[in-house]
Computed example of a mutant assay.
Amino acid sequence: MWPDVGISSFQCPTKIIFGLGAHERLADLIGERAIERLLVLIDPALLNSVIHRKVAGVLAQNDVASAVFSATDSNANDSTVQAAFKSSREHGANGLLAIGGGGTIEVAKEVGRLMPSSPLIAIPTTDGARSAVTGACAIAILDPLSVGAISAQDAAYAGIDAFVHAFEAYLSKRATVFSDAVNLHAMTLIASSIRAFVADRNNVWAALDMLCASSMAAMSFAVTGRGNVNCMATSVSVLFPVPHGLASAVCLPHAAAFNVPANPERYARIAAILGIDGSSRREAQDGAQAIHGLRALCSDLGIPPRLRDIGVTEDRLDELAQRSFAADCNDFNPRYTSEQDFRALFGSAF
């Protein structure tokens, strides 16, 4: 059935190039856009990594003068953006290339807004590639060779976070037939590949599935918004030093169970994606099997089951509930959630 969302739209302005060895397309992209001087923004940990060396080789072979800016961190704060912009001006750059995680790509996007005539190309190096396909990126290159250095733990956190993006967008009150198509396939790719990728980050086909799926999941944010899991995880990460993906994974089964009554038919589809046998139709429809599948996925990836296991303290649960309610996800989340509901959810997860 069509949700009552009125007139909607769906677009992803970013050009996406994906596949094993996709970084080699840099030569064509640089030529097409007449880039002669390039500022390369890169995570400090990736300096002289395999992907950095390969990209540097492509740039050298095409006579592109490049300068490297590596003073990035997880936050695109004003001082970092200004420092990167200064480097671009000093180098005379007419193009930007970001190699790294969300923090580096976000810094590059902010610099790109100060250089509107300079194209921005992003090569994400985690399996949570949403920054590369949202906002100001003109081109995203999804190459499985770029994610081999990520740790198993970070791969699990980023991968589950990407699944949550697709999961919540699919359940959103503002979902459309276009966002459904993208998010269903994103969940299918992640469910079938995340275990293999976490076990071996050099499994290039599982890595490519994860990169593509996380990008797909990010495409519909502007249309669908996100729900309770994101509200809860964001609140946790603000108050405690917990990665957003880990917080999302711990909160996921609890928030998902709360939302079942709003759209049980969609949970049956999710259960099938998670590989749960729907022979008991009643259980599949009431969401029990989908929740079981979510818990099993998190467990297989070594995600701790409780908030207390990741450093959250009971004395902050009220504040977490207040923050989550104030974030106001009720325009998107399929079931209305009061501050008291959030308190109960945090209590359940604790």
Rank of each mutant, 00 (worst) to 15 (best):
G227F: 07
P261L: 03
D309Y: 12
Q285T: 14
R282F: 15
Q285E: 14
V312N: 02
V223R: 05
R308C: 07
R306W: 12
A249V: 14
E283R: 13
E283F: 05
I291V: 10
R306Y: 14
R226L: 09
V260Q: 00
M232H: 03
N228C: 08
S280Q: 13
P243W: 05
T313C: 03
R266T: 11
V250C: 03
R226V: 12
P243D: 00
I270T: 04
I276H: 04
G245N: 08
I291Q: 01
A256F: 13
A233D: 09
D277L: 01
L294T: 11
A247M: 08
C298R: 13
R295M: 14
I270E: 00
V236W: 02
F240A: 02
R282W: 13
R306K: 12
Y267D: 04
S279A: 13
S299P: 05
H244N: 02
Y267R: 02
S279V: 14
L274K: 08
G275I: 09
N228D: 12
P243Q: 04
T234I: 06
V229K: 00
A262L: 04
Q285R: 15
C231G: 03
F240H: 14
E265H: 10
N263P: 14
I270R: 01
S248N: 11
L252Y: 08
S237Y: 07
L297W: 11
T234S: 05
A262C: 07
R281G: 08
S279W: 09
D277M: 01
H244F: 03
F258V: 04
A247D: 10
I310G: 00
G275D: 11
T313K: 06
T313M: 02
A249Y: 10
V238G: 01
S248G: 13
V238I: 11
G245C: 02
V250K: 03
N228P: 11
R295P: 09
C231T: 08
H244G: 02
L246I: 10
V236Q: 02
H244W: 04
G293A: 02
D300W: 11
T313Y: 07
C298K: 09
H292G: 06
E265F: 04
A255I: 07
G278H: 09
A257W: 09
A262D: 13
A256P: 15
A247N: 12
A272R: 15
S235D: 09
A247L: 09
V238K: 08
R266N: 05
G278D: 13
P304T: 04
R306F: 11
D309K: 12
A272N: 12
I291W: 03
V250F: 05
H254S: 03
R282T: 14
R308D: 15
P261A: 01
V312A: 01
R266D: 05
A233H: 13
R282N: 13
D315L: 00
T224F: 12
V242M: 00
H292I: 07
N263I: 09
E265M: 04
R269Q: 14
A296Y: 12
E314K: 11
A288K: 15
G245T: 11
V312Q: 00
G293M: 02
C298N: 15
L239S: 07
A249I: 12
L301W: 14
A271V: 08
L301Q: 10
